[in-house]
Nucleic acid binder design. Structure first.
Length: 283
DNA sequence: AGCCAGGCACCGC
DNA sequence: GCGGTGCATGGC
């Protein structure tokens, strides 16, 4: 697929979108980024409000328009959230170019199982290792070869011991179980789309190794359930710092944030998370 | 060298 | 229920 699509964008900054922690399969290249999603490689770059995607118009409409959540008015979301309080407003001002990508459920599930007690560069590394071991080869640029994230069917070839060999550590049986359940159809990820938040969350949490936080990340980043507020250590620290002023239990922070941020909790979470991590709030 | 990292399961009370 | 602890691996 060659050609290119050039768009004028607003409330959109590639750096913020990719570096804010929701996405793991990208790397800086030249003036822009290479990213891998939906079994494709895409080169994108942005100069000011001009975004260029190295694909044809059909591919843009079929794949990338929804991936980048292009149809949503982030100006309105940011305005609404900015009225909540000065802390959130400051985070939004700093990280003004964030958009929530609509990524693939299966990839998000495995990615966030991997994410527990790991830092982002290591998460990215393990996802690359899984892709290289079990995914389709999709592109080559000189020395560099790119691989799609493996399907559940492909990853099913890996035993728990194989996975351990890839250095996923204690996550090996978790990844294995998730793969079995999805590949066998015992869990139908497509069905979660229609389910209410808590119902979908229960399905995901029936997989060993998937707790509230991992489930919430999948529901927010893959299913667009924007009322979800994934609460991890960074979010805990930033909420404690700005809203409680003292050590507070995870569950209490989650309950507070869900009701305080309401339908836009997921967006608020991402502005706060990126802000907190970038500024080491609470560390 | 020891501590900690986008958590979670499991154990004891 | 609630709090504490072990867990693989790697970076600092």
């Amino acid at each position: 697929m060659d050609g290119s699509v050039v768009l004028t964008v607003k409330d959109f900054l590639l750096q913020h979108i990719l570096e804010c922690g929701q996405c793991f399969r990208f790397e800086p290249k030249g003036e822009g980024y290479i990213l891998i999603a939906k079994g494709k490689l895409l080169y994108v770059n942005q100069e000011g409000d001009c975004l260029t995607l190295a694909c044809n118009l059909q591919e843009y409409k079929d794949l990338w328009q929804s991936y980048f959540d292009m149809e949503r008015d982030y100006g309105q979301i940011k305005l609404t959230l900015s009225e909540k309080d000065r802390h959130l407003k400051a985070a939004i001002t700093e990280k003004h170019g964030i958009r929530l990508l609509r990524q693939e459920p299966w990839e998000m599930l495995i990615s966030f199982i991997i994410s527990q007690t790991k830092q982002i560069p290591q998460i990215k590394h393990l996802i690359e290792v899984l892709s290289k071991g079990y995914g389709d080869r999709i592109s080559q640029e000189g020395e560099r070869v790119y691989y799609a994230f493996p399907t559940a069917e492909q990853l099913k070839k890996a035993s728990i011991e194989d996975l351990r060999g890839l250095k996923v550590g204690f996550r090996a049986p978790y990844i294995w179980e998730a793969t079995q359940k999805v590949a066998s159809g015992e869990i139908n990820l497509d069905a979660l789309e229609q389910m209410a938040y808590l119902e979908a969350r229960e399905v995901l949490m029936s997989i060993k190794g998937v707790g509230q936080k991992v489930a919430d990340c999948v529901l927010l980043f893959a299913y667009g359930k924007y009322e979800v507020f994934p609460t991890d250590v960074w979010v805990k620290r930033v909420i404690e710092h700005y809203y409680f002023g003292k050590d507070t239990k995870m569950e209490e922070i989650h309950t507070f944030a869900q009701s305080y941020f309401g339908d836009y909790a997921g967006f608020a979470q991402q502005y706060l998370f990126y802000h907190a991590r970038d500024n080491k709030i609470g560390k």
